[in-house]
Design a protein around this nucleic acid. Sequence first.
DNA 1: CAGTGAGCGAGCTTCCGCTTGACTT
Length: 792
Amino acid sequence: MHSFFNRNIKNMQKNLVIVESPAKAKTIEKFLGKDFKVMSSYGHIRDLKTKEFSIDIENNYKPEYVIPDDKKKLVSELKAEAKKAETVWLASDEDREGEAISWHLAEALKLDPERTKRIVFHEITKNAILHAVETPRNIDINLVNAQQARRVLDRIVGFQLSPILWKKVKPALSAGRVQSVAVRLIVERERDIHAFVAEASFRVIAEFILPDGLALLKAELHKRLKTKEEVYAFLRICEKATFSVDDISTKPLKKSPAPPFTTSTLQQEAARKLGYSVSQTMMIAQRLYESGFITYMRTDSVNLSDLALGAAKEAILKTYGERYYRFRRYSTKTKGAQEAHEAIRPTYIDNEAIGGTAQEKRLYELIRKRTIASQMADAELERTTILINVSGSKEKFAAVGEVLVFDGFLQVYREGTDDENEKEQENGLLPPVNVNDLLKLKDMVATERFTQRPPRYTEASLVRRLEELGIGRPSTYAPTIQTIQNREYVEKADKEGAERPYTVIALVNHKLSETEKREITGADRNKLTPTDTGMVVNDFLMTYFPDVLDYNFTANVEKEFDAIAEDQMEWTKAIDKFYKVFHPIVEKTAAVKTEHKVGERELGTDPETGKPVFVKIGRFGPVAQLGAAKVDDKDAPKPQFASLMKGQSIENITLKEALKLFDLPRTVGESEGKTVVAGIGRFGPFIRHDNKFISIPKDKSPLTITLDEAEGLIAEKRAKEAQRSFKKFDEEPDMEILNGRFGPYIAYKGSNYKIPKTVKEPKELTLEEATKIINEAGKKPAAKKQTKKKKS
DNA sequence: CAGTGAGCGAGCTTCCGCTTGACTT
């Protein structure tokens, strides 16, 4: 059938196929047979220089591409193999980046166009690959140009905005098309939260006794009451009212399964259901992919291959029966989706359980269930609503019950929710009643409820928002979240809630009573919160570069990239159009001279010294400054500085709070004849005693810590130190067995040696055994010593 | 690891998207 592949069996490696990932290379090599050698490019092999701008503006934005050092060896290997091969098949992904990878390969390996073919396949099956090989094409230079435009635009934005921040705000900051919008989302959400005013209303719930005198029916007033007065007025009517069934209606409801996983939805569900962080999910998925258990994990496609659809159908029919199966094809609606891959699914859907770590098993199970459910029938429900009249009032109560008539896909999988209020209010079956039945009121309770402030973003919900806006790609969601935290624009923070009183008014046995209860509101754990730096940088960029920070900026430039890909626009023209507007603003902004630093705020005057007090972003973060810098007068006293404490913000710190910071470092007292000092250092609040530093825990402040508390911390630290040491050797004082962050290890003459897992009781290691471990470790390339800053 | 910062100046920092190792004291 494919005689083509059977030719030249004796000549080895007539063909070289280059794909992007080694796992993929391994799989397709099996399908192609001996005439084909399959190698991997490991992603891009060329890029702009990392430390230079690398775009020649004068020369029509010519990019200067280089092969990164860590790719040089690989590229020379590829080159050598390409030279030997009769035909080189470039088989990178079909999207913009994939096309560019093929083009860079062709250029860097200096491939002969006559002997080079570009192929793509949409699924890794023998047929698909053989079909691809039979229908090769050339490199699509328009698509490549669209990628070059994308690359050059990102470099221009990133490398021209960041230096302005170094100058105006703080060194080593960064800005970019994706990360700056991510920060903006978080900053604006935080401001929305602070501006939010909760509105109160009363929710009225009544419990009725049915005519049989036994069954209870719980119903809620169809609207909320605004004020206490309204509640009292209504409850007084109810006190004397009769209640009757007004109407009973049932209507069928359907629920459909969620589509198969993309990178973004996998990250969201793994966070909701398994509690994994975005990067954790990606690491686990990578291992599943490399082990051959799932398809590629960086994708924006919800599409399943015909093969997978067939396998899912078979699995559903076999396990659940025909009624549970429904063929579904999903289409991707995300802006800017490129669909180079399939959705994330098990490679073999029959594979119910896999080997591996517990985490891998759980993620695999999640992926498998989601995939199967996506091809299953709708769940069918029946919702019954009973309306109840109140004599003397036009208001009605409603009791709602939902009954699952057919579980369908819910048998396998139910999608998680981010809404913490929506706690699966299970309205079960309602008791049987008839219209006009009279109901007896058991009790009625009006509870004051408040509107909810907008939620802070989690990593996963931020990814979802970015994807909705078409900003970022599956391969960058996790790194972007890392970057904005590394720059200290945002942090995962816990917020303590505040106590809020609320009123409950009850009508029981014809008696009205009012009680005040308390609840905690606004508490948050592990949510993305902007730092002062993040807010100052965001405000600065919003002032001078609103176009780049616009939520539609990416979507707009994507339209241009599409036009380039369709040969309707030259990529350099598109870049020129942007640059002609953007660069002058860069120049102008860099030249703006301001009396005060960006984001600086004057709080007032220190009543003791009469000096002004400022807060701003200093070289090391948020800082308070006492006294203005006198540039002209060299003899003038220098201003004093004090870092803000965690939890304080330059946005809202008061003069009084700021002045207190200058009390640090402060002498707490004397212990064992040595002074105890409290302060704030590079790593947060600390106390120092006998030249040893001890961190102050969150619940205490260096401003108020007492000598007693400090002595407690010192004792605690000593106890911990003692625990850290498992064993010391009298014969060899240089050797010690310690318990460290990564488990027990041997410290010997400045080096550390890991104790193999085979040792069950590290505490009982003998000197001989320990020496043996050290000697064996010495044979391998020696573990690097931690580079420590030398004190001079 | 730790009380940092306006004296001066050189040299450094930075983007987004493809992909995995080599590291783990």
